[in-house]
Design a protein around this nucleic acid. Structure first.
Lengths: 139, 139
DNA sequence: GACTTTTAGTTAGCATGCATACAATATTGT
DNA sequence: ACAATATTGTATGCATGCTAACTAAAAGTC
């Protein structure tokens, strides 16, 4: 049995390929895919906390904290202490972060469209459904 | 649109989940998934070179070289200079490596079976086919 | 044969991602 | 009120996985 016939290999490679395509578009802006994902979530939900952000991204907290720290160092994102819970922080895009994020073309759509080349609508939905079931089996 | 509805997210997460399950089984042996994959390939093709190994695994050469180095440090794998090409190396499992690899239960099958729980044969084949087409779109 | 180009592999640097351990604050139980 | 517990976030260490830059040896060109 050939290695590139295994489900794990195919999942790994297709995920990596798709991510690489995304990062190709992000490179001119100096962003990585996870950084872009963080900015997208914070842009969508200003004031989001670290735990909720990590949960939405599917990362653990240390990973998410690290990505946020690198974005903070570039002054694209702000950590603010919550007034209601001294442990919690609220995340916001800085003005520079908002400007940069607004300047990004519709990257996700573009990469998704490329991934879906040659597929019909039903096939994509089916693929997503199968992937969700795979995840369920490991939950 | 929810983030966990995107194809990229689903691919990434299902690949990570499956890999985590594999590493769960590998942990008692002190191996990671890529390390196991390297040992499996070298076991299958003794004397394989670094470039060919990297190609089969879908990694680049520096990544593969690093994984091999960590296995070599644990004396599970051997780097031998080729007699025909002074640049090339040939990879072999050490005796300890062979013993360890032989002691591993049929991990891939086990994890694959778990991933495929609730799927019929056709669905798995279809999923693999869809993933191959995704990869083609980014090739 | 000398020169150029390829090819095999490593080194260095960076950003994930993970597990573990920790500090600080909130919450709960009594 | 106060001790035990849970929760929020960070620090650390490690193994990927990538790009870019490099060395050494082989192959092609003239």
């Amino acid at each position: 049995m050939d290695i590139d016939d295994s489900l794990g290999f195919l999942l790994n490679r297709s995920a990596t390929d798709m991510r690489a395509a995304l990062e190709n578009h992000l490179a001119p802006y100096g962003l990585t895919a996870p950084q872009w994902a963080v900015m997208a979530r914070v842009s969508h939900t200003p004031g989001i906390g670290m735990t909720e952000l990590a949960s939405q991204l599917g990362y653990d907290k240390p990973t998410t904290s690290g990505i946020v720290s690198r974005l903070e160092k570039r002054e694209l994102i702000l950590r603010r202490r919550s007034n209601f819970d001294q442990r919690a922080i609220e995340l916001y895009l800085s003005d520079a972060g908002k400007t940069l994020f607004a300047a990004l073309p519709a990257l996700a759509q573009h990469v998704n469209a490329r991934a879906a080349q040659g597929f019909n609508e039903g096939e994509i939905l089916l693929l997503k459904e199968l992937l969700r079931r795979i995840r369920q089996n490991f939950a």
